[in-house]
Nucleic acid binder design. Structure first.
Length: 592
RNA sequence: CGGGCUGUGGCGCAGUUUGGUAGCGCACCUGCUUUGGGAGCAGGGGGUCCUCGGUUCAAAUCCGAGCAGCCCGACCA
C-alpha cells in the first residue's frame, strides 16, 4: 500500500479529550475517530489491526471446533422477557420500538438468541454437543463510556456458546474454550493472566476472566505472591486470621447465627456494658479515630443499602471495605443501591453518619462480614445524631444478624485463601471472560432435548466472550513508548514500512523495486511515497508502530545498501540491496 | 444520577476578570528556496466564538436555560 493514496490522518498534538496511552495513540496514529462519546469509526489502519485480532480469534475458534455464525444485532423484546433479563438488564440495554410499537433492543449479548435458535431444532441427546460463535458489534448504553476503545458504547465482540447434555460435557467444553483463549492471547503477543471471576448478571456456576495487566486497567486483581491463586477482587477472598479469643465465637457462628442465648458468647463478653458517647459531627471512621482514639479495626462500619426495595445493612470492620458484589450475591438481589441519606430516618430508623446495628428495627436485614464475629468492645453508630456506642459485642448486642459471611474486599498483604502467602493487588484490562451458564437460559426459554431414557432435559450452556476492539486497545497499553505504538508483529497493520528519503530518481526507483518484491513475497508493506520531509516520515512510522522500517537514502544507496530499523528495540543496521527481500523475511521470523 | 472542569477555524490553545467589529502555533492553499529526524521566506483561504433566550447603543465576554465533551464520584454513613 502506498501512503500517498492512503487515508491516515495522523495528529502531531495530543487530543485534549484522551487520557490513556491507547486512546491518545490510536487517535494520533489515525486509527480511530469518535462520532460521539464511546462510539468510534475504525479508519483503514485501525481496521486492519481489528481484522488481525479477529482472524487470530477465528482461527483458534475454528481449531477448537466452534462453528461461526452471525446472529441479528436487532432483537425482539419477547425473548428477553422470557429469560427475565428485559427487566434485569436495566438501562444498559438500548431499546426502541418499530412503527407498530413492537419492542426491540440492540443486542448487548446473545444468550437469548442462541437459546431461541436451538430450542426448536435440537430434539435429541444425539444432536449435542456443539459450539456456535460469532464476531459482531455489540451495543451497550454504558454508564460512563471512557478511555477510547476500552469502554465503548459500541464495540466488536467475539461471543461463543456451547451446548451440552450435562455438566460433564460443559466442563469439557469450558476447558476447551479456556485452552483456546490462552492460545488467542498468546498469539496476540499479550501478557495475560487468568483470574477467577464473579459471573455477575450472566448467572451460572463458574467463570474466569482473561486479564491484560496494565496501569490503566479498570479491574483490580488479587494475586498470591507464593502460589497460583488469582482472582478478581470482586470475588477474591482472604484466609481468615484466627486471632485471640475469637475461637469460641467462630465455632458458634458455624452452627448458628442466633447468638442471643448462647452461653459461650456471654462468657467471652461478660462484664462490660454498652455505653453511649457523645461524638459531635463524627460521621466517618477517621473522625471517630481522632475523637475517641479507637483504632479502625475495633469499629463496626454499618452500611445502609436498599436491595430490591428492602432495607438491608451490611457490617464490616472499620478498616475494611465492603465488597458490593459479594453483598449482592449473598442477598441474591437484582437491584442493589446504597441508601440515600434522606431514607435513613424512615426506612432505617436512624440518621446518616450515625447508623449502627444495635436495636435496629426488626424488618431490617443485617448481614455481617466474618471478621465482625471476633470483635469485642467495638464502636458503632448509636442511630442518634452525634452519638456512637462503645463496648459493643456483636454476639451479645446484635441479635438479628442474619449471617456472618464474606463481605469485605481483600487488601494487599492479606493472606492467600489457598496457601496463606501474601496477596498483591494489580490492575488489569478484561479482554476475555468465560462462563459456565448451566441451564439458566435453556430452562427459562424451553431449550430442551430428550436423553437416552426419553426424559426431557434442559440443554447445559456455556458462554465465552472476547472483546476484539478492547484487545487492540490493550495491546497498545502494553506495547508503546514515548514515540508511539509498538505493535506486536501479529497485530501490526503492516509488517514493513519503506521510507524513501529525498526525491532523487534512484531512491524512488529502489524503493518501488523492493516494495514490489516484498509484496510478491506475500508481506504486508507500506510505502511512504508522500512528498514529505524525512523527519515527518520517521515520526509517522514510529507513531503508527510498524515493526520493521526500511530507510532508503542516496548515501547508503550508493553502496547498494538499505538501512533497517527494528521498532521495538531501535536497533539499526544495513542490509544488501540484492538480498534485501530474504533478509527482511528472516528478520520478521526473528521478531516473531 | 451527583460534583467539577471545559466548549473560540481541522488539531492544540489565548482572549472572558474590566463588554467596543476575533487572535496565536500547527495543519491547509500559491510561489520561491530548502530537502537523512516534524524546513525558511513571502502571500493567501478558512470561524453561526456549543445552542436558545435575556441585559445593553454594543456580547466570545454579563445573566438565565439547555446541549455536548472530559474527569471524579455514585461503598467507607
Amino acid at each position: 500500500m502506498k501512503l500517498s493514496k492512503y487515508y491516515m490522518p495522523t495528529l502531531r498534538e495530543v487530543p485534549a479529550d484522551a487520557e490513556i496511552p491507547s486512546h491518545q495513540l490510536m487517535l494520533r496514529a489515525g486509527m480511530i475517530r469518535s462520532l460521539s462519546a464511546g462510539i468510534y469509526s475504525y479508519l483503514p489502519l485501525g481496521y486492519r489491526v481489528i481484522r488481525k485480532v479477529e482472524q487470530i480469534v477465528r482461527e483458534e475458534m475454528d481449531r477448537s471446533g466452534a462453528l461461526e455464525v452471525l446472529m441479528p444485532a436487532m432483537q425482539v423484546a419477547d425473548i428477553w422477557k422470557e429469560s427475565g433479563r428485559w427487566e434485569e438488564f436495566g438501562p444498559l440495554m438500548v431499546r426502541f420500538k418499530d412503527r407498530n410499537e413492537r419492542e426491540y433492543c440492540l443486542g448487548p449479548t446473545h444468550e437469548e438468541v442462541i437459546a431461541d435458535i436451538v430450542r426448536d431444532e435440537v430434539r435429541s441427546y444425539k444432536d449435542l454437543p456443539f459450539n456456535l460463535y460469532q464476531i459482531q458489534t455489540k451495543v451497550r448504553d454504558e454508564i460512563r463510556p471512557r478511555f477510547g476503545l476500552m469502554r465503548a458504547k459500541e464495540f466488536i465482540m467475539k461471543d461463543a456458546y456451547t451446548l451440552d447434555r450435562d455438566e460433564d460435557g460443559l466442563d469439557k467444553a469450558y476447558q476447551n474454550m479456556y485452552d483456546a483463549y490462552v492460545r488467542v492471547f498468546d498469539r496476540c503477543g499479550l501478557d495475560t493472566r487468568v483470574v477467577e471471576a464473579d459471573s455477575g448478571a450472566m448467572g451460572g456456576s463458574g467463570s474466569h476472566e482473561f486479564m491484560v495487566l496494565a496501569d490503566s486497567g479498570e479491574d483490580d486483581l488479587a494475586f498470591c505472591t507464593e502460589c497460583e491463586y488469582a482472582a478478581n477482587v470482586e470475588r477474591a477472598e482472604a484466609a481468615l486470621e484466627i486471632s485471640r479469643a475469637s475461637k469460641a465465637a467462630d465455632d458458634l457462628a458455624e452452627t448458628s447465627a442466633d447468638t442471643s442465648n448462647n452461653p459461650a458468647a456471654d462468657a467471652t463478653t461478660s462484664g462490660v456494658e454498652i455505653e453511649k458517647v457523645h461524638t459531635p459531627e463524627a460521621t466517618t471512621i477517621e473522625d471517630l479515630v481522632d475523637m475517641i482514639g479507637v483504632s479502625p479495626e475495633k469499629m463496626i462500619k454499618t452500611m445502609a443499602y436498599v436491595a430490591d426495595d428492602q432495607p438491608v445493612v451490611a457490617l464490616v470492620r472499620g478498616d475494611d471495605q465492603l465488597n458490593e458484589v459479594k453483598l449482592r450475591n449473598h442477598l441474591k438481589a437484582i437491584e442493589l443501591r446504597p441508601a440515600h441519606p434522606d431514607e435513613f430516618p424512615e426506612r432505617f430508623g436512624s440518621v446518616a453518619g450515625f447508623i449502627g446495628p444495635v436495636d435496629l428495627s426488626e424488618n431490617i436485614k443485617i448481614v455481617a462480614d466474618r471478621r465482625i464475629q471476633e470483635l469485642e468492645k467495638a464502636v458503632t453508630g448509636a442511630n442518634e445524631k452525634d452519638y456512637h456506642l462503645v463496648n459493643v459485642n456483636p454476639h451479645r448486642d446484635i441479635a438479628e444478624i442474619e449471617a456472618f459471611t464474606e463481605l469485605r474486599t481483600v487488601q494487599a498483604g492479606d493472606p492467600c485463601p489457598r496457601c496463606g502467602g501474601a496477596l498483591e493487588i494489580k490492575s488489569g484490562i478484561e479482554v476475555g471472560h468465560i462462563f459456565k451458564l448451566g441451564t439458566k437460559y435453556s430452562s427459562s426459554m424451553g431449550a430442551t432435548y430428550l436423553d437416552e431414557n426419553g426424559k426431557t432435559q434442559p440443554i447445559v450452556m456455556g458462554s465465552y466472550g472476547i472483546g476484539i476492539t478492547r484487545v487492540a486497545a490493550a495491546a497498545v497499553e502494553q506495547h508503546h513508548d514515548d514515540r508511539g505504538i509498538v505493535w506486536p508483529l501479529p497485530l501490526a497493520p503492516f509488517q514493513v514500512i519503506i521510507l524513501p528519503l529525498g526525491n532523487s530518481g534512484d531512491v524512488g526507483r529502489a524503493a518501488e523495486e523492493i516494495y514490489e518484491e516484498l509484496q510478491d513475497a506475500g508481506l504486508e508493506v507500506l510505502l511512504d511515497d508522500r512528498d514529505e520531509r524525512a523527519g515527518v516520515k520517521f515520526n509517522d512510522a514510529e507513531l503508527i508502530g510498524i515493526p520493521l522500517r526500511i530507510t532508503i537514502g542516496s548515501r547508503s544507496l550508493e553502496n547498494d545498501k538499505f538501512e533497517v530499523q527494528i521498532r521495538r528495540t531501535g536497533k539499526e543496521f544495513n542490509i544488501d540491496r540484492s538480498s534485501a527481500c530474504s533478509e527482511i523475511e528472516n528478520l520478521l521470523e526473528e521478531i516473531e
